[in-house]
């Protein structure tokens, strides 16, 4: 599996982009040329220069530094969202798919209710109820997304539940936990990895969208969506302000989506000609 992934050039390039972004984000103080909060009002809207490689924003803060520091909330909050979503979705999906009957009914009706709400409105509602805060945004995202995962995982579990090795385990009276965590979870994990990669893109966009609307990460914390939001105020006079955060979001989201596609190819054992 790893060898197939290793041979896939697209996957390797995308992993490279994502890894590089992550490393720059983690070691932001080493890479950022300036303090991301330092205001220099005399230099506001400075064009690209050696001192400020991507110019400065409306308060004269270095955009490159803010972009670099902005990786932390953008990437890590979306990762956090995905971890939360997947863990709740997996537990619920496994329970529903394996035990069926009444547990399945209860969980799936809950899922049906969750899925019948428009997701964006749900996020707004949750944030409006709990207050404007990043934590609430993540909570809201997890809250609307787990149902979708639970359904996907349930379907996958049902596919593997009647394979002979699971039947054998049940026949000889092995523990349910062994069947769930050693047989079923590894079987569904590859498909889950693909889904999760594709959905990180969604999470990044969603957090950026909410920050853009002023519901997510709050000023002065640097975040790509929030930076885009500030840039839109001067769209007509300084359009170049939008380029850096906009392009960065596009590249990162695209990288995750391409990686998801590549993973799907690499993990599908029937696809031989890679």
């Amino acid at each position: 599996m790893w060898r197939r992934l290793y041979k896939n050039k697209m996957a390797m390039v995308m992993i490279g982009i994502i890894l590089m972004t992550t490393i720059i984000g983690i070691f932001a103080p080493f890479f950022a040329p300036h303090d991301s909060y330092k205001i220099n009002i005399l230099d506001k809207y400075a064009p690209y220069s050696l001192e400020y490689p991507l110019g400065t924003d409306n308060l004269g803060r270095c955009i490159l530094s803010r972009m670099i520091y902005g990786i932390r909330p953008t990437l890590f909050l979306s990762l956090l969202t995905m971890i939360g979503t997947i863990s709740i979705g997996t537990v619920m999906g496994l329970l529903a798919g394996y035990f069926t009957g009444i547990i399945d009914e209860i969980i799936m009706r809950m899922v049906d209710v969750m899925l019948s709400f428009p997701s964006q409105i749900m996020v707004f509602a949750v944030v409006a109820l709990l207050g404007v805060d990043v934590r609430n945004v993540i909570l809201a995202n997890v809250f609307i997304k787990w149902a979708w995962y639970a359904r996907m995982i349930r379907t996958n579990v049902m596919k593997y539940k009647d394979t002979n090795y699971v039947l054998y385990s049940r026949c000889i009276g092995n523990k349910e936990s062994f069947i769930l965590f050693r047989h079923l979870l590894p079987s569904i994990s590859s498909e889950m990895a693909v889904l999760a990669t594709l959905d990180i893109g969604w999470a990044i966009l969603n957090i950026s969208t909410l920050s853009f609307l002023g519901l997510g990460v709050q000023a002065p914390t640097p975040e790509w969506g929030a930076m885009l939001s500030e840039a839109k105020n001067v769209l007509t006079t300084n359009p170049n302000q939008m380029i850096a955060p906009g392009v960065a979001i596009v590249i990162l989201v695209a990288a995750f989506n391409f990686l998801g596609d590549a993973l799907r190819d690499a993990l599908d054992p029937k696809e031989k000609n890679l």
Binding site: T163, N164, Y165, L167, Y168, S169, C171, I172, G173, N174, F178, R182, H183, P186, S187
Partner: peptide, 26 residues
């Protein structure tokens, strides 16, 4: 105790287990 051997040997062992893991389950 009762044990079982299936017809379809391709699916009767978990493809992610080694032979030793398969036997160790029992």
């Amino acid at each position: 105790p009762i044990s079982i051997v299936f017809q379809d040997y391709t699916t009767s062992a978990n493809p992610r287990f080694t032979v030793s893991q398969i036997i160790k389950e029992s």
